[in-house]
């Protein structure tokens, strides 16, 4: 009664759009990555370069350092957010007056534009009138200068990301916690398990799919952070907070060295895909164990 043709007809506009702006650039970047192409060079056009772009890439200290920095950044923020989020989600499992109000305020950072997040935090830490350096210096005598000290810039970037995304982690884990059936927990308590044992052997395993989903989404978003850090520190001081996305956006892009830039983009894509795939395998296995 329903012909498949109408179904495909309804589906096709979405597929065409995603193909043009999603898949085509992917194929194109592979193609360009194997060419020399610099519009300011003598040749101007594309010339086949084989794997030469990649040969250059694996010895590019700036690029490798930025990539490593991004991995460290991702690991730091995702771990902190997960631990913090879990604790906070636990406090929200109880109903208490004002819970809805706190929740609403708490979601606020999630809808703020990343570029505006960078702007707000920059205003918080500007030496001269930002409140954080002012009070740190006045109360503790600490000179907080994100433009001078690499560690300060790094700490601010991490703090900003935690401010921005912990609410998301908390609320997702909270949804997971509320979905856990009560009986196994109560049964374990009756059997004499202490709180820690219940948490370790019942809550965590039951929460595993949700935890992995959150980690998955957070990792893939943390790997692509650009706007906030660009606004906050512009990658500095030096290259202290130049994450890989920012490196491509700020350093490679203006150079018009398209072939090399494409190779770099592809390698970033490769790292992302491998990490996502590993998490997917983990998710699928956890799902299978539950079934």
């Amino acid at each position: 009664m329903r012909s498949n043709r109408l179904g495909w007809l309804l589906l096709s506009p979405s597929l065409i759009v995603l193909f043009i702006v999603g898949f085509l650039p992917f194929l194109y970047v592979i193609w360009v990555g194997f060419h020399d192409w610099n519009i300011f060079a003598a040749t101007r056009g594309m010339t086949w370069a084989g794997a030469n772009n990649y040969r250059r890439l694996v010895f590019d200290q700036d690029f490798l350092a930025a990539l490593w920095r991004t991995l460290v950044f991702t690991f730091t923020v995702v771990t902190s957010e997960l631990v913090l989020g879990f604790v906070l989600a636990q406090t929200l499992t109880r109903q208490f007056p004002g819970r809805a109000f706190f929740r609403t305020i708490y979601v606020l950072p999630l809808v703020v534009a990343p570029i505006a997040v960078g702007a707000t935090w920059r205003l918080m830490v500007i030496p001269g009138f930002g409140p954080i350096p002012y009070f740190l210096e006045r109360w503790f005598g600490i000179q907080y200068r994100i433009g001078t000290y690499a560690e300060h810039a790094w700490a601010t970037a991490v703090l900003m990301d935690i401010w921005h995304w912990t609410p998301f982690v908390t609320l997702t884990l909270l949804a997971g916690l509320s979905a856990i059936p009560r009986e196994p927990l109560e049964q374990a308590m009756v059997d004499g398990a202490n709180r820690w044992q219940v948490f370790r052997y019942i809550t965590i395993p039951m929460m595993m799919p949700v935890i992995l989903t959150v980690v998955f989404i957070r990792i893939m978003d943390a790997l692509r952070v650009v706007d906030e850090v660009y606004m906050l520190t512009n990658g500095g001081p030096g290259t202290a907070t130049t994450l890989i996305g920012l490196h491509i956006f700020r350093v490679v892009f203006p150079k018009t060295d398209y072939g090399y830039g494409s190779a770099m983009s592809l390698l970033v894509l490769y790292v992302t895909i491998v990490m996502c795939w590993l998490l997917f395998v983990a998710l699928a296995n956890v799902g299978k164990q539950k079934a």
Binding site: V21, G22, P25, F26, Y28, V29, V32, M220, L223, R224, V226, I244, G245, L246, I248, F249, V252, F253, Y258, G261, S262, S265, L266, V268, L269, T272, C276
Partner: peptide, 11 residues
């Protein structure tokens, strides 16, 4: 999931 920075150049 694709990192936007990787798609800047091709796009």
């Amino acid at each position: 999931m694709a990192p936007p920075a990787a798609f800047l150049l091709p796009l």
